[in-house]
Design a protein around this nucleic acid. Structure first.
Lengths: 177, 177
DNA sequence: GAAATTACGTCAATAGTACTGACATAATTC
DNA sequence: GAATTATGTCAGTACTATTGACGTAATTTC
């Protein structure tokens, strides 16, 4: 009963390895790294009754204040219905406000409130600490390498989403106003 | 109605930025990278009616053939009940077999079948391709830097999980207890 | 000015992954 | 024999996500 049924395939007892030309080492590291990376804010979010979805919305609204619902959907790659509940909760709890679009009054521009800004920072803080520690461990000069690697991991056609970020150390961006 | 209610906080119109001492650049890159990294296998999994959870189980059973249910739970950081359904499906579809533990017959050692090995490879292939391309983009010599960075992103007390990776071919360093 | 399109919101139903708590069984250990 | 351990399973719940349908208001098109 606990042994494989007669029809079932035989157990393979050798470990899959990088020999197969596949980079299991980094695949696995990426899994572990992301697992622990998200565990930090998850704990804070739980106190608010929020989940990871709230974090993502909060993050991008703070990064790109004034983005519309449609733009947010495009960045998150989720559906309108999935966003609806999460966004409503963030608005109801006064973390995000909607402002009627100036050009097109059908649009709702999304902005963080002071409360929403504060929460976004609180969530990012432990993640940033973890990154800083990891950068130090791996030699502080290697930041550019890691940034380039992560960017290269994103689908080329979606890399535009990254460049829309607000002004930062890197030069390229549009004049946000 | 679409405007902020009187009681609500005022919209903040400036973007949050790295000035706040927080590394939003890498936080965001990590999100995008992981989003697209998981999208590759997700498409294959959908054909089987499987989800991301199946992938993770399949991955680790292939990486560490013979691991027990308890060990798997510890690596994945999920509960027994969450694993149950996923593992059952993988066993029912003949991707994984259970073998009674040799020393302790209560234990079920988990092994991939040929079918399970093939699927694990198929799922890892596009991910590995993406990693290879990203490594090339960021300069092939930088692999060690990125590996160290990702490892440093994992909680120190959980880093042991990474070292349990299989012996490449044989001769494993099984630091038993 | 009427019609079509767009942006957004909402309702209903469903799925996948996770959770807690409780209980059962078999094997091992004390 | 009793306690503990490894595993399996049941019931109930939560969160995030899905598709499809429909409504409303604003803009665009003809």
């Amino acid at each position: 009963m606990t042994d494989p049924s007669p029809a079932a395939g035989k157990p393979i007892r050798t470990a899959i390895a990088d020999e197969d030309g596949i980079d299991f080492a980094i695949i696995e590291l990426f899994f572990f790294a992301y697992r622990d990376f998200t565990s930090d804010p998850d704990q804070i979010l739980a106190e608010y009754g929020f989940g990871r979805a709230h974090h993502r919305v909060l993050h991008f609204v703070n990064r790109r204040p004034g983005l519309t619902v449609a733009e947010l959907l495009d960045v998150l790659k989720i559906t309108k219905q999935s966003l609806a509940r999460v966004l409503k909760q963030l608005i109801d709890t006064d973390h995000i406000v909607q402002v009627q679009g100036p050009r097109d009054r059908r649009q709702r521009e999304l902005y963080p409130t002071a409360k929403g800004r504060a929460l976004a920072l609180a969530l990012a803080r432990p993640q940033s600490r973890r990154i800083r520690a990891a950068l130090e461990d791996s030699g502080a000069t290697e930041r550019a390498t890691i940034e380039r690697f992560l960017e290269a991991m994103v689908n080329p056609e979606l890399r535009a989403q990254i460049d829309i970020v607000p002004a930062q150390t890197s030069g390229k961006n549009h004049g946000d106003h």
